[in-house]
Design a protein around this nucleic acid. Structure first.
Lengths: 116, 116
DNA sequence: CAGTATCCAAGACGATACTG
DNA sequence: CAGTATCGTCTTGGATACTG
């Protein structure tokens, strides 16, 4: 696993999904297309700037699709590309692992068993 | 997938492995225990400071184990904890995805098929 | 050999104001 | 509604020098 190609591949993935909000955005889009405002409401702590920026980067990487509806008021919908959909299993595995990790951390913090 | 627990779990994982060098370090340790110097040689671009720092963080998260051999010259060995070993499948999936992504990007860049 | 300590640069991120 | 533009901050990472 320490070979160069493997390491490079792993780093490539991290570059694509490494932004602070990208994984969360993808989680939302996994459930279906979302408008800009819907995404904002779903992530109360993100700023417009960051949302726009991260969406653009995901778009450039071919992960998501941006569709502008020419109408007033403006409407823009974001959705996963078929390619972006392949992130699904990655997301699931990351979530699985994170969940177990969180449980571990919680257990350490609680006084139920020995502390150290 | 857009539910809060799922999103939190995914973010938790990213926090643990999100450092610039952590995934690469993990790749090396997946092959077995390594000394500090071995890791450095395996990652020519990392500085001592960053290597030390990222190792400490991985240690704090319970992913890796640090063993100091009391001898001169000093010898310190890093290895995955059993828990850290559970990152293995994550690493593989990230590598798979990254490899495919890289192929995609390369194809776009090459003139073999239509350019836009 | 395996680190620390210090200082510095770059980039990521955020707050705010403005626009088609 | 869905952005852009600007500026400031904060975090991350890097260069260099020193140490048990």
């Amino acid at each position: 696993m320490g070979d160069q190609l493997f390491k490079d591949s792993v780093e490539t993935t991290l570059k694509v999904i490494g932004g602070k909000w990208k994984l969360v955005i993808l989680c939302h889009l996994m459930d279906g297309a979302r408008r800009f405002g819907e995404l904002r409401r779903g992530m109360p702590d993100i700023t417009q700037k960051m949302l726009t920026q991260q969406l653009r980067e995901l778009e450039e990487d071919g992960i998501i699709h941006r569709e502008v509806f020419m109408q007033v008021p403006p409407k823009v919908e974001y959705s996963l590309t078929p390619y972006g959909g392949t992130m699904g299993e990655v997301l699931h595995l990351l979530a699985d692992w994170g969940l177990k990790h969180q449980e571990r951390v919680d257990k350490e913090a609680s006084p139920t068993s020995s502390d150290h």
